[in-house]
Write a protein that binds this DNA or RNA. Structure first.
Lengths: 238, 238
DNA sequence: CCTTCTTTTTGTCGATCTGACAATAAGAGG
DNA sequence: CCTCTTATTGTCAGATCGACAAAAAGAAGG
């Protein structure tokens, strides 16, 4: 916080960016836009923008960007701070500090085309991590941080339920862990383990939903945010 | 990230604040300054300030503030991002967004008096949490987040070693957990558990250091950053 | 030197948890 | 009714955990 007599404050621009992760089928995906302006015109980038009014809350700005890019209103959607990115040379246009939020959404239909010349599209995480889809600015680094955060929080928080619809089966929850961690889990042990965590998932009546085999019970997210005991990630995969 | 034609950008100031936590004896403490200027003149606050130059890295600014307030040069010291705080009304002087870092230091001697009319002092966490020491701005909220972060990270990262000198005993490490969590732990089980985590602590020769009872072996931090298995917090204490 | 006290380190034991994997249950589709 | 697929319940040996005993290694005092 400030002290001293009024000094000239460096002109720094504050941006708000979003990493929106989802699961479509068994594919771990992120929402990217195609930039319509320089710099990095034509490149993929994370959705985001600057504060609109001087009194706009940073969190509200994130919700606004979210709604501009997707048709999500943020209700029931998981949003948390990821961090800030403020290297002096990260934007060639000048000094820009980005406040980045991480949002987790259940599998959604095709994204809405953005306002102007921007087109939003779900992109496979693998496509980005392999380098086939290069990202503008330092957004690759930001995405790496977001993925690492999601992988870690899956272990000891109820974050996995944010990838699921309001009601889901245990097998669907397992697919979240498998897709985000990139591993295969034993359904029997996963079933037992998940049910053993108090407050993680609660039965949603005796309902059922069908695909091919035996009908599965439906659950919804419990009130627990931290998992005791945690769902541990197999050590073979990092 | 930005799009569109050049628009007027809201004048937002970027501040950098620090939560510096340490352990002095068995007391969990935070470094606070006494504000020498309005607003909140005379109140306690977290150390921090604005970027000095337009091309100053945010992280470098945090290191600079750290050195101005303590005589630490950041070497061997744990520093991580805590988050950003950007509510529109958090600073009566105008729109200020704070980027906050969390620093963990081993028990240090008395802090250095700050530059101008500011005095830095270690303050017991309990004094602040109980409300006996009110903080300026939204710094109470920031400190709450920092403490929560430290408590959680103690469980599954090697953060506890950042509270210790380069070389330490297992009993000293235990005191870190006990002070930060506010619990008592069984020395026998703690000893066994800590040694069972690969890469957490490594023996520092057959050295020893004395107080009263049997001499203890010395260790230093291993290369592990995440703990497998984690050091679980007793459920009695939250 | 011997006894007492303190703190560290090594064990022990039963309850619990975990991972590998068998077996059963409940439909769908012929 | 038979087969195929997926969900759910069991089983079992090895690992882990919390509570607690016991041994080890000095310091302090007589």
């Amino acid at each position: 916080m400030p002290e001293k007599k009024p000094r000239p404050r460096p002109p720094v621009l504050v941006a708000v960016d979003l990493v929106i992760l989802t699961l479509r089928g068994s594919s771990f995906q992120v929402l990217l836009i195609e930039r319509g302006n320089e710099p990095f015109r034509g490149s993929r980038a994370l959705p985001g923008g600057f504060l609109k009014r001087v009194d706009e809350d940073v969190y509200d700005a994130a919700l606004r960007e979210l709604q501009e890019e997707t048709d999500l209103d943020g209700a029931g959607l998981h949003i948390e701070q990821l961090g800030f990115y403020g290297k002096p040379d990260r934007d060639p246009r000048g000094r820009v500090v980005s406040m980045v939020y991480l949002a987790i959404a259940p599998g959604l239909p095709e994204p809405v085309a953005g306002t102007d010349a921007t087109a939003a599209a779900w992109t496979s995480i693998d496509e980005v991590l392999s380098g086939r889809v290069p990202l503008a600015f330092d957004h690759r680094e930001i995405l790496d941080d977001a993925i690492e955060r999601a992988r870690t929080k899956l272990e000891h928080t109820a974050l996995a339920t944010a990838f699921c619809a309001p009601t889901f089966t245990i097998a669907e929850l397992q697919r979240v862990y498998e897709a985000v961690w990139g591993v295969e889990l034993d359904p029997r042990n996963f079933y037992r383990k998940v049910q053993g965590v108090p407050g993680f998932i609660v039965s949603a009546g005796a309902e059922r939903r069908v695909t091919k085999g035996r009908p599965a019970r439906l659950f919804h997210a419990g009130q627990a945010t931290v998992l005791h005991p945690p769902i541990t990630r197999p050590e073979t995969n990092r």
